[in-house]
Nucleic acid binder design. Structure first.
Lengths: 200, 200
DNA sequence: CAAAAGTAAGTAAACATTCATTTACTTATG
DNA sequence: CATAAGTAAATGAATGTTTACTTACTTTTG
């Protein structure tokens, strides 16, 4: 039996992410992808059932899965509050810097109904990625460190500014000067932390 | 001369926003829009040059323009810091609650290359919407009230959580219980404010 | 040589956009 | 004040192109 080419499988994934990042999700077509990856359209359909299947697997496996794993590396629910959040931000920044294309598709997860649905379903099925962070925050509230707010609100306060900064970071990559430096990121993280602390 | 039907013009705009919100930007086609609005495809081209023109005008005029106007109503650069930010959040929440479809297209402004480009170009041409808020924040830094951070970072800290909450608000509209209440929004706004204050 | 991997060349359906007309209304005239 | 001329609004059907996906065949391996 002829063995499958790993090179081609990786090309599909990487070039798809690149097209999405550079031209937008709406401009990724199966034909364009095949041509750019120098393969036949049919080859994509050996690995993926259809376009929807491809997009969802890219989003869930290649992007979200890898990101969630990266962000939780070295993070421990027992950490002190500020220490834990800083670790998450550091990990996130490190990962994103090296995975610009993944970041682009991740952003589509909030707008595209298809990806949004896939994301919600996955979080229901397999006890979600945010579980350790959820428990971490719950403990901080219990210990009187952090303001008692719904988890969704805490998550918004802690991470929404981070994604905004990453967006800014990538936009400034193409410009003469980068404003999102490690120091700026640390300062922003501090601001986010102090906003959630109980004693203001 | 046959008078033009305002009803039809409005139908194009409203139904386009509805389709984008419910099915996604990538699933809006000119023919589908025409059918849903009960007009001929040709009629859309009387008002708009092409699909790109339609999308950009929807985004810039119908969505961003209306939002920016709404959010700045009753806001004054001379306001006290917390007061000013609370006003912006209140205005934003009020507007968004009544314009779910507009919110959806607004979110696409961050991901869609087409809309992103249109947004950037507009902000360069006509001295941007954020100018009063920019000056407001600059003054607060000068007066030693607010942490000295790049404007982009302040904007991220102040407003990124807001959009996240609006997303959550709309998702919970279809569920039995709403978690994003006026009180939760006020509390979140307070947290955002305290994160930016110089004395923690 | 079995059998999966891979391909070139298709397919029907959907796409954005246009053409050639018709419709609905205003207005100038007998 | 009836009616025909004029005109912008609006249209249904068609344009060529691109789409996601398939068919029929070839290549490459154990």
């Amino acid at each position: 039996m002829r063995p499958k080419s790993v090179v081609k499988e990786e090309a599909i994934v990487n070039i798809a992410l690149q097209i999405i990042s550079e031209e937008g999700l709406e401009n990724l077509s199966m034909q364009k992808l095949a041509q750019a990856a120098n393969i036949s359209p049919r080859t994509i359909y050996l690995k993926y059932e259809n376009k929807e299947d491809l997009l969802i697997k890219l989003f869930i496996d290649e992007v979200l899965g890898a990101y969630e794993k990266a962000i939780l590396t070295g993070f421990d629910e027992g950490m002190e509050f500020a220490e834990g959040i800083k670790k998450l931000w550091q990990n996130g920044f490190q990962y994103m810097k090296n995975n610009r294309y993944a970041f682009s598709l991740m952003q589509y997860g909030k707008t595209s109904p298809l990806l949004n649905k896939a994301y919600a379903e996955r979080n229901i099925q397999q006890g979600q990625f945010f579980a350790p962070i959820h428990r971490f925050l719950k403990m901080q509230v219990k210990n009187g460190i952090v303001k008692s707010l719904p988890f969704e609100v805490q998550r918004a306060l802690l991470f929404a500014p981070f994604y905004d900064l990453m967006n800014e970071y990538f936009e400034h990559l193409d410009r003469p000067k980068q404003i999102i430096t490690d120091k700026v990121l640390r300062d922003t993280c501090e601001a986010v932390i102090s906003g959630l602390l109980k004693q203001s």
